[in-house]
Amino acid sequence: MAVFIDLMLLGMLAITALRVIFLKDLFAVVMLFGIYSFLSALIFVNLDAVDVAFTEAAVGAGISTVLMLGTLALTGRKEKTNNHKSWLPLLVVVATGAALIYGTLDMPPFGDPNNPAQQHVAPRYIQDSPQEVGLPNMVTSVLASYRGFDTLGETAVVFAAAIGVFSLLGLPKRDRAAIESGLKSHLVLRVVAKLIIPLILLFALYVQFHGDYGPGGGFQAGVIAAAAIILYALVFGLPLATHVLQPSLLKVLAALGVLIYAGTGVVSLFLGGNFLDYNVLASDPIAGQHLGIIIIELGVGITVFAAMLAIFYAFAGQAERKNIP
């Protein structure tokens, strides 16, 4: 059954990808990308990667698609037909694909528990991490503790992206007297949004702190919380949103999250451990691990929330500027 579902999803993905190649309407292309992202999230669930599926759905189908649509609003939705078609890209792709297929021929069989990937490093994460780190969600244990340095880098990447977008687009000024925008005239939308935004924020908090036990964690929580405010900005207008959460505050928060994460590592240095060694944070190693993971997940959540929202503000600010004649 799982094989059948897998095949069906993969087939749908292939059709979506092919449609994207030939479509000229960029709005449709972006929507198809959202679908692609959702479908791949389903595949991830089918392959037991629930945390990844969660993130892919929130990021690929959520944030990325919103940003792409925002860009289209500024650049136009039609792709122009290009007359001089070249065979070179097709040639490169066929060659690359052939190389990859050649590479698959010696791959270990799909799903076999005796594959090298399942044998060497991974068993410790599966067998010992619930005792060593004390969390039932092994993905969180590996992410935040064993490979916590990767995650620190990942937080820095988000921060770097925020810096990039700030420098390219600038942040909108906080301005109450700005033109009316948003979808205020739609009563139904307003009411629904008012009902749903607190729930989304609550859910974000749940995801933030429940990541140790179930799928979730700082990254997903940050994205979801940002989505709540994005919804607010879409319905009630950017000026109002920037009044509630100021762009300059977001800049500070984005920086703060990175500092919290890296700071945790420095604290463990001073307490006599290695960088990011949470064992030394409390008298009992398990408690230390737990404390460390909660703090760094908070750092990730804050940076991701602030960076994603600020990036959205920057794009939305451009669109508002365009609307002013």
Binding site: D51, T55, I126, D150, G153
Partner: peptide
């Protein structure tokens, strides 16, 4: 195996960061 999941969580974030820029 949880390890590939962790790697891809990181890679997804890297991807969205690149997309934004």
């Amino acid at each position: 195996n949880p390890l590939p999941h962790v790697l891809i969580l990181t890679a997804i974030v890297v991807g969205v960061a690149t997309t934004a820029v």
